[in-house]
């Protein structure tokens, strides 16, 4: 008898794999990006099954809700020529295969190794009131505080670099001084003129 959770797992896994395959096979880049969103949703479901609700929600919140929206934003505005894209496909094919092989080897090596990832042990079930978020926070800010801060600094560098690369001041930009606009008074803008009344027809 297969348990309900197993069925859900296989459904979500099938969905994720299907979506992931479609990400690279879809012709239209917008469709590919939307399939990536679907793959993220499938993975979030699998993480929920693993009781990693914080990670699952964050995946949806950050990747689906923000990163992919910006991705779509850019992809939708691109005018992509498919013929040009497919040029040189076979020339780069061996390189791509080699890269994929390295990635697969790395993942198998890390995930299938007892030192880096616990395998073969059953999932520890927790009560409904167990807060995974609290535990995660505690670990991040005590045991793993240095790696965590290091990651934060890395992200900060990425932000600063991205801004430094894209920030260009234009001399002719017509920005408004908002403080000045807000501080404006009635007397600065209007002048009340007394106009003497006239009789009609004069």
């Amino acid at each position: 008898m297969i348990s309900f959770e197993t069925i859900v797992f296989y459904l979500l896994a099938a969905l994720s794999v299907f979506a992931a395959v479609r990400v690279i096979t879809a012709r239209n880049p917008v469709h590919a990006a939307l399939f990536l969103v679907l793959a993220f949703c499938g993975m979030a479901g699998i993480w929920l099954l693993l009781e990693a609700e914080f990670l699952a929600m964050t995946l949806i919140l950050v990747y689906v809700g923000a990163v992919m929206v910006l991705f779509l934003f850019v992809v939708m505005m691109l005018d992509i020529d498919l013929v040009q894209l497919r040029e040189g496909f076979w020339r780069w094919f061996p390189f791509g295969v080699a890269l994929a092989a390295v990635m697969v080897f790395e993942m198998v090596w890390v995930l299938g190794n007892n030192r880096t990832a616990e395998t073969g042990t059953a999932l520890v079930k927790h009560d409904a009131d167990y807060s995974n978020v609290k535990e995660l926070g505690r670990l991040i800010y005590t045991d793993y505080v240095f790696p965590f801060e290091l990651a934060a600094v890395l992200l900060l560098i990425a932000i600063v670099a991205a801004i430094a690369l894209t920030l260009r001041r234009r001399k002719d930009s017509k920005t408004q001084n908002v403080a000045q606009q807000v501080a404006v008074k009635r007397a600065d803008r209007i002048r009340i003129v007394k106009v003497p009344a006239e009789k009609r027809g004069e």
Binding site: V37, E53, F54, M57, T58, I60, L61, V64, G65, A66, V69, A128, D129, Y130, S131, N132, V133
Partner: peptide, 17 residues
Amino acid sequence: VNAGLLYILAMTSLGVY
């Protein structure tokens, strides 16, 4: 749900799609 607030944030962020 224990992570109710996160769930709300996640769901409202999906509305833009």
